[in-house]
Computed example of a mutant assay.
Amino acid sequence: MDSPHGAAVTAGNLGLKGPRGWAFRGLDVEARPGSLVAIEGPSGSGRTCLLLALTGRMRPTEGHAEVGGLRLPRKMAAVRRVCALGPVPGVSELDPAFTVAEHLRERALLQRRYGGSLRALLRPRAERIATAQERIDTALAAAGLDPATLPKAERTSVRDLERLEALRLSVALALIGGPRLLAVDDTDLKLSDSERAEAWELLRSVAAGGTTVLAVCSQAPEGALTLRTGTENDTNGNGVKSPADDTDGTKDTAGTADGTTTGKGTADAFAETGRA
């Protein structure tokens, strides 16, 4: 699989409004290709809507953004082609009844059929199979998942995976297509401290490999460019500046997000805007 070239992400006064109010508002950010960007906030603060808006899955209400030079909301379809979703509840989820092998084969088949060139489809069957396996192996290595270590190896069902193993599988599936940007929701959900550290190390590794990473979380790690959605203790929903640490290759720029909705804000925004 070709090494992906990360997509720069910029936004100015970006906002998305649902029937009950703003999911987020006033977002300004500038992240270089290959950055790790953490979207920090409590559940229901609009963080998933922000993730989906920046990946071309939800249409912003105001402002603008660019992903890999593609302007939002005008180029939403083009942005979706260069972005890949990891785990996002209700949008991109693993099927608990599928095995690891079934998920990998399905994703490789979809990539070959819809993400490849016509010339690739006309190659001999043996060559197509070898190329697909190479993509799978490369993605698994990047996600740090060795199927041989699972209870039933590749025949392990998703329902039998630990939370961190499922996260690694979702990331591997997303990387099969060689995206320029990877988006992950609920990065640190139901993880122990040690598992959380492993998850962030995984995403740092993906970013270091050249793919820009957007990751929703309840607590951002050190060194990440951080966008903070509204909290219970911040009635204005003001965001915070990114850390001065530039170790992940991001510019030392400010990112703010005005998330003024409560628990149902994300669902309301989905209802109004729909998903592309």
Rank of each mutant, 00 (worst) to 15 (best):
E102C: 05
D2N: 13
L203H: 01
H5T: 11
Q111Y: 13
V184D: 02
V216P: 01
I129M: 05
P151V: 14
T156H: 02
L203E: 04
V67N: 01
P124N: 02
A174E: 03
S157V: 01
A8F: 01
K264C: 12
E222Y: 05
A174W: 03
T273P: 00
V91E: 05
A143T: 11
R163P: 01
D188R: 02
G259I: 08
A174Y: 04
A215W: 07
T231H: 12
D186C: 01
R59G: 03
R125E: 12
C217S: 05
L161D: 11
R105H: 13
R32T: 14
G26C: 02
G178D: 02
A139H: 05
G56L: 11
T138V: 13
Q133L: 09
H5V: 11
R168C: 04
R80I: 14
T262D: 15
E195Y: 11
D268H: 07
T247P: 00
G15W: 12
G68I: 12
D258H: 12
S194K: 09
A38C: 05
T260N: 07
F98M: 07
P151H: 11
S117M: 09
D185P: 00
L150R: 09
L51I: 06
T235G: 00
A257N: 03
A153W: 00
D248Q: 08
T273Q: 07
E201H: 12
I136F: 06
S242F: 01
R81A: 12
V216H: 00
R81K: 13
